[in-house]
């Protein structure tokens, strides 16, 4: 599904990703772990199409298409979703309006008619309940005045609405208390299917107790230095990142 080969990325001349290789197949959940500043968020942003980075070398293929030639919005319509580490506040745009625009633009890209209003509202209602989001939240401006936890829940809500093939969740667990973490993880687990995949970026093993990964990667200084099963996350938690460095 996603195939990254020898990806080298820099920002302002400073190399951040120094040759990443990653293969994600349908039905898989990958976890990417690693200390701060090793390039985890950069990797997520580059896949989503953030243009502040320079891709020096390498390629990213998504379902056989070259992602690096695609606009941000086309990547989204192809089925890529990025759950932001720091979701942006957008005063004046309601979540409902935002999601209706996004859903319908993605449908248009795929040659479908806009979703009928009643169908859309029913879907909103269903996903809201799944994530225990109260009605009031949905009528407010996107992320405006939301707590950290509300913002992260809202990311998962958007993911549920857009139903992507590949979701990259960038530190979705940071800023969540244990109850919110369970709700978010539960939402992700409900959306898991044989034909979609998740890349979960996290510092801590805690989230991976609820979203159980198939493969764990350790990103260190711009490279994936180790990959393994879910037990790798536990080992990391016990021994710390120094263990990898050694």
């Amino acid at each position: 599904m996603l195939s990254i080969k020898n990806l080298r990325v820099s920002i302002n001349g400073k190399e951040i990703l120094k040759g990443i290789n990653l293969e994600v197949k349908p039905g898989e959940v990958h976890a990417i772990m690693g200390p701060n500043g090793t390039g985890k968020s950069t990797l997520a942003s580059v896949i989503a199409g953030r243009d502040i980075f320079d891709v020096e070398e390498g390629e990213i293929q998504f379902r056989g298409k070259d992602l690096l030639d695609m606009s941000v919005e086309d990547r989204a319509s192809e089925g890529i979703f990025l759950g932001f580490q720091y979701p942006v506040e957008i005063p004046g745009v309601s979540i409902t309006n935002f999601m209706r625009t996004a859903v319908n633009e993605q449908r248009k890209y795929r040659g479908l008619d806009p979703m009928p209003a009643n169908e859309f509202l029913a879907k909103m209602e269903e996903k809201k309940q799944m994530l225990e989001i109260h009605a009031k939240l949905a009528n407010r401006s996107v992320n405006e005045g939301f707590s950290g936890g509300e913002k992260k829940k809202n990311e998962i809500f958007q993911m549920a609405m857009l139903d992507p093939s590949l979701a990259i969740l960038d530190e979705t667990d940071s800023g969540l208390d244990i109850d919110a973490l369970k709700i978010v993880a539960n939402g992700v687990n409900k959306l898991r299917r044989p034909d979609n995949a998740f890349v979960v970026i996290t510092h801590y093993q805690r989230l991976l107790e609820y979203i159980v990964p198939d493969i764990v990667h350790v990103l260190f200084d711009g490279r994936i230095v180790r990959s393994g099963g879910k037990e790798l996350a536990i080992e990391l938690e016990e021994k710390g990142y120094e263990w990898i460095r050694a």
Binding site: V72, E73, A76, S77, V88, I90, V93, Q158
Partner: peptide, 28 residues
């Protein structure tokens, strides 16, 4: 630009993302 990227990352075209942000600005 952060807000533009956020909107586009959900599949909203750059033209519509700009429109939404301008509209939101005036909406106040």
């Amino acid at each position: 630009s952060e807000a533009l990227f956020y909107l586009r990352s959900r599949g909203i075209s750059i033209e519509n993302a700009r429109m939404l942000l301008m509209y939101a600005f005036a909406a106040e």
